[in-house]
Design a protein around this nucleic acid. Structure first.
Length: 453
RNA sequence: GGUCCGGUGGCAGAGUGGUCAUGCAGCGGACUGCAAAUCCGCGUACGUCGGUUCGAUUCCGGCCCGGACCUCCA
């Protein structure tokens, strides 16, 4: 099946043709580990996890690299604020990140490089850039900086669609006096005694943010690879700078074949961001609903669109999943079936998860009517979306405080009351359980219970 | 100010040059002791003004509105 992806570089939907059909290589910008992930940070993780799941269905081998940035000025600032050693802060935050992403059903990437373990590659890259005339050393007050010379790369601005004039005109940054050109950006900067630093040809210092991703993608995927993903807010300057660095360091290479960018998560119409203070951490959200519901919510909107988060929308996502799990529960004996064609077709069309989910609803309709084939299709489609992997009973009964034997006892008592036509008593029992968040359903096969939604 | 993206029914959210998105909510009915779940049925839509066309929500242009980026940011 042909896969089409919307390439940010060309702004068009394109047929995806891997450089090596036997091995697809993808890089996604990972977190800077200084604080708990918020839901906006989770969106690219879930989106690209889904893409990788799809790629694995379509190609024999996929290598998925997602980095961890563990050297950064925000990390330094946070560590100083809280008086926690940097190594402890980054290790703890990375651990929490892994836990949160696992809760959202995101598989671990094949390779998760850490910036601090790739300093040598960064230095090597910077040396190449200096040797080729794309970077220069500049003396600042604290020591030697290495800057990338934007003027040396004529294609600069192609990804973001900006001219150099635009960038300079709109620049809100104070321009460091040692820059030759206002658009030049830092590859290496000096570190003070209180800052993390590594020995380099330019003295003790640390890398700029952009060079990290160029170095890690080069090390693990080579100078040319298929897909690079990240949030749309990274398009400029981060990804533009990566292109400049990588292509200049390896003349003749194209660096990335397809650029993919997910839309921003919003709250009340504004981008969710730490700097705006309008964020919910993944943990905040997981307290309100299972991780699968959170994942489903993120997949209900196409990855390139903006998504306005609300707890009401999360509750709705959970109810939709209820329906799917009910359809599975009604058909416990299901044959093995491939992923239904409409689901694959939707996903292969620029990862149209909302359309895929609409197909799931159609399958659920049939499955609820007793069609085991449809239920089998539904179950088969789950894994490619990272959904429906739970046992239906666990889905419906998870998170309830009361213990099962007590609930069963109450149900038995109610059954006796109903048999005696003592409906007042029966309804009282049902109401008491409802007060504990437990919902009863009387069916032909008896009474079952589930958590209230 | 510059670059880019978008405005679809109560809400969420796909898509298309000419019969259906889909879900949630709502309404009516069936089922139920009553519910829940399920089933059947119903309604409301394509920001605005022009243009192209036999026909536009879909293509083109103007306008209005919203958002992202231009600084760290997923």
């Amino acid at each position: 099946m042909d896969l089409f992806l919307h390439n940010s570089m060309t702004r068009r939907r394109e047929l995806f043709v891997p450089l090596d059909p036997a091995h697809v290589r993808i890089y996604v910008c990972g977190p800077t580990v200084y604080d708990l992930a918020h839901l906006g940070n989770a969106r690219p993780v879930v989106v690209f996890d889904t893409l990788v799941r799809l790629l694995r269905r379509l190609f024999p081998r996929v290598t998925y690299v997602r980095n961890i940035t563990d050297v950064d000025d925000k990390i330094i600032a946070r560590a100083a604020e809280t008086d926690e050693p940097i190594a402890s802060l980054t290790a703890r935050t990375a651990h929490d990140f892994h836990e949160d992403m696992a809760a959202l059903g995101a598989l671990a990437p094949d390779i998760e490089p850490r910036a601090t373990l790739h300093i040598a590659e960064m230095i090597a890259l910077i040396e190449r850039l200096i040797a080729k005339g794309n970077a220069y050393v500049a003396k600042g007050p604290e020591g030697e900086h290495v800057l990338f010379s934007v003027a040396s790369f004529p294609a600069y601005g192609r990804l973001s669609g900006r001219s150099r004039e635009d960038m300079i005109a709109g620049a809100r940054v104070e321009i460091a006096p040692y820059k030759r050109d206002p658009a030049d950006f830092v590859l290496w900067k000096p570190s003070g005694p209180d800052q993390p630093g590594w020995e380099s040809p330019w003295g003790r210092g640390r890398p700029g943010w952009h060079i990290e991703c160029s170095a890690m993608s080069w090390r693990h995927l080579g100078s040319d690879f298929d897909i690079h993903g990240g949030g749309s807010d990274l398009l400029f300057p981060h990804h533009e700078n990566e292109i400049a660095q990588s292509r200049c360091a390896f003349p003749g290479s194209h660096f990335v074949r397809v650029w993919l960018h997910n839309g921003m998560l919003r709250v009340n119409g504004e981008k969710m961001a730490k700097s705006l203070g309008n964020f919910f951490t993944v943990r905040d959200v997981l307290a309100a609903a299972p991780g699968e519901a959170v994942r489903f919510l993120l997949l209900k909107t196409h990855y390139r669109s903006e998504l306005d988060f609300s707890f009401a929308a999360l509750a709705e996502a959970r109810k939709e999943l209820d329906r799917f799990y009910r359809a599975l529960a009604r058909n416990p004996d299901r044959p093995e079936r491939p992923i239904p064609a409409p689901v694959m077709a939707a996903l292969a069309d620029d990862l149209n998860t909302p359309a895929a989910i609409a197909s799931l609803h159609a399958l659920a309709d049939q499955a609820l009517a007793g069609d085991a084939e449809a239920a089998a299709g539904l179950a088969a489609a789950g894994p490619v979306l990272g959904l429906l992997g739970a046992d239906p009973e666990a889905w419906f009964q998870g998170g309830v405080q009361a213990d099962a034997p007590a609930i069963e006892a109450a149900i038995a008592e109610r059954r006796a009351a109903r048999a005696a036509r003592d409906f007042a008593r029966a309804d009282k029992i049902r109401a008491d359980l409802a007060a504990q968040g437990i919902l009863l359903e009387d069916g032909p096969a008896g009474t079952t219970w589930r958590r209230a939604s």
